[in-house]
Design a protein around this nucleic acid. Structure first.
Lengths: 196, 196
DNA sequence: GCAAATATATACCGATTGGTATAATTAAGC
DNA sequence: GCTTAATTATACCAATCGGTATATATTTGC
């Protein structure tokens, strides 16, 4: 890794929590320079503009999140257990301290949907990718006989799982009540248990 | 209503969609003057600062939302039917065109949680108030014998309903796919149906 | 309909915004 | 170790930020 690549990575790591907490328009270039301890020259030497930093930060946050779950999911043998990783890990999401400032998906989605087409598309693809992965698990679970085939709509179930998780994160974040998150994850747990 | 009160209301109505779309830090005073056609003098003559406009706009958006649902809920006689208003109306949320820019609760929650204590508290109270109302419906439904008492945790159910709704709105908004909203509302419908 | 009070417009404030040109510094290849 | 190329720092840009003082209109109460 060259010096520039290292610096670039350093900037991303330092600004990722910033963008996740303060948002795109809430994070200024001076926020970025103070968070990194670097100067504007250094930032603009490694990134085209603020947009590029924000996009890289979003990608970084999402990858961190996905890696955490992927590691735990691949440990599981049944598809039901793979799905159950979500309510289990998310019950304690804020203690996991994966991303500072809550979920990057919901944070970026609500800010970018009407204002930032590029980020908007990135979030859309992230969610659709997540949905496809869940659909895959559910369909494979049906094939494996873990879930009953005729009553389950994989697409609907996948979308519902994501909705509950994102909604739960928002509620517990804004109320500051972490128990709300685990409470709602009990409902998600039941939804997954009821698939069989 | 005095002239000032009319102007104040006018400013709120014109800026409410603005704040809901662009967010607090994304909406500038010049955005407000162009949207209203008024000058800074007029805005600052009726509001202390940008904060106050934003808070008034948030209240306005939430009230609009709540009124729409309250009107439909009071038409229903059973508590189950009152709860079912949510999936029914939200299935077609974007065609209802209540608030431009999506749900003010989720929009303001994700921006304000780490940045704006006053707005944060407003959103928290809005959500907790909503939850209490749902808990009330569920408890009354249990008392009335509509729902089975022993299997239901009203608090958990209420929180789950809110989470699904907010998550669903976020997903359909960011993907631009309105059918995702109605699909997830089918799941919410089932959750409510299963209470009996 | 006139005077006092209120509301709106104008012109300005210092600070900060994202971004750039260029100079100083540091790393990389031989 | 020296030269060249890449990287970082400095100094600056016009534009915009939220906000204010004051002047001009416009209501309002009598």
């Amino acid at each position: 890794m060259s010096k520039a690549e290292k610096t670039k990575q350093f900037i991303i790591e330092k600004t990722a929590p910033l963008f996740n907490m303060k948002g795109y328009s809430g994070t200024s270039m001076s926020d970025i320079t103070t968070a990194t301890g670097l100067t504007k020259g250094s930032i603009y030497g490694n990134f085209e503009n603020k947009d590029e930093v924000a996009i890289a930060a979003f990608k970084f946050n999402v990858k961190k999140l996905q890696d955490t779950f992927a590691r735990e999911i691949e440990k599981q043998t049944t598809f039901k257990d793979k799905l159950l990783v979500y309510p289990r890990l998310y019950s304690d999401y804020y203690h996991l301290r994966i991303t500072q400032g809550g979920c990057p998906i919901i944070n970026t989605a609500t800010e970018a949907d009407d204002t930032h087409p590029v980020l908007r598309k990135k979030v859309e693809n992230t969610i659709l990718g997540w949905k496809d992965k869940l659909v895959c698990f559910i369909e494979q679970g049906i094939s494996a006989g873990e879930f009953k085939a005729k009553d389950i709509d994989p697409e609907k179930t996948a979308l519902t799982i994501i909705a509950i998780i994102e909604g739960a994160i928002m509620i517990s974040k804004i109320t500051g009540n972490l128990s709300h998150l685990s409470t709602i994850m009990l409902s998600l747990n039941k939804i997954i248990e009821d698939l069989e």
